[in-house]
Design a protein around this nucleic acid. Sequence first.
DNA 1: ATCGGCTCGCGCAA
DNA 2: TGCGCGAAGCCGAT
Length: 466
Amino acid sequence: MVDERRVRILREGNVGSGPVLYVMGRDFRAQDNWALLYAQEQAKKHKVPLGVLVHFGRNLVQTNERHHSFLVEGLQETATELESNGIPFFLTFGNWEQEVKQFVEVHEIGLIVTDFSPLHESRWWWDEVSHGVAVPIHEVDAHNVVPAWLVSDKQEFAAYTFRRKVHKLLPEFLVKFPKLEPHPYDWGVSKTACWPRGVDKNGCALIDWEGVRKFRKFDSSVRPVTSIKSGGKTALQILDIFIKEKIKNYDQYRNDPTRDVLSQLSPYIRFGQISAQRIAYEVKKLRRDVKSRDSFLEELIVRRELAENFCFYNDNYDNFDGVPSWAKESLSEHKKDKRDYIYTLKQFEKSETHDLLWNAAQTELVENGKMHGFMRMYWAKKILEWTKTPEEAIKISILLNDRYSLDGRDPNGYAGVLWSIGGLHDRAWAKRPVFGKVRYMNYSGCKRKFDVETYIQRYHGSSVNV
DNA sequence: ATCGGCTCGCGCAA
DNA sequence: TGCGCGAAGCCGAT
């Protein structure tokens, strides 16, 4: 049974007699998905078929080939698993009113279920859809261990205010997932009317995945990351390796970007190919490496869900207005401070600063679609130091992270940038030029903590893959 | 190598 | 109203 507190009503109304449709927007997986489990529960209750639909809009300016191919590759796996459980998978493209709305009407959908995201893109979309269809819409928080609207009813000030609230609810929510069961009511896929239209000899909806991959018009200069393989199965293998081999060193070395002790799961969490709750559930079982276990769970649950809390309750999660007032005032006071270096977006993007360590981090981001957690802080703080205003620094950091990182366009990224540049969830520190009271970080700090040379060497040059 | 100060405000105890 | 302490640090004194 799906906990009712995971569910919010986006559009009121009685559930109709037609099929239940899960419009998958964020959690692109078949297993360990509360939104899917809830949709099935409703479909069984009303004795109707269940289907899953993914809609690709045409005008996602920030989407590029890197993100799109990662998403589509994983989606194929998800579609296959859904269909082998009697749940047909549909794709629609372009204008939602022509596609999704029509789909809902043609198939006489009785209930729409979706997964929760705190980001504007998603909130605005559902706001529009809920005014455009005549069907109840239920939203399920399938991404967080504890539902965002339940854990706290306001923007939390810092991790310590949020931590108690999460921990209080964890015993109720950090539970084992039920396995997805084959759906007992047949949709009759031969009646499917979706792009690409048609069915194969077994009556399954035909999807031209190669066509799907090429469908969007986007910046193809950001190449797919060949070193990171997409998909839920891969994610589970990576989790297994992390638990067996890497987590034991997590506490000691997690801030050392030359060591391989992090889970590397964030792209998979970002695209919902693995559930954070599944990761937490497996890691929590550990009876060894307790210190590492707990610091990993802190990052995975407390800090990740704190970022969701921030984006959920603060509309300005991606700009200067989102930073706490003490930092806003302090940064404004230091706006006119002399900068030793000023770089343009292009110079940052091409790793053309005077700082080899910074350039290495940027290269890691561009080439590998990720950046080590510790380097993200240093990286963003230096962008503050080397641009004219904190507003511009935030803009550039978010743009680069969203464009190149596989886990970009995600609450974690926005909260991370605002933590680094705007003191979000942090405290005030001794005043310095440019930074004001925002925590300062520098090259010598990195040198104290890890072997800077090794890191620089690893990402030196322009076509490095490790 | 280690320590205190820097500096703000939330939330709880009283 | 007072007080402890916090998302990952820096720096100078000892």
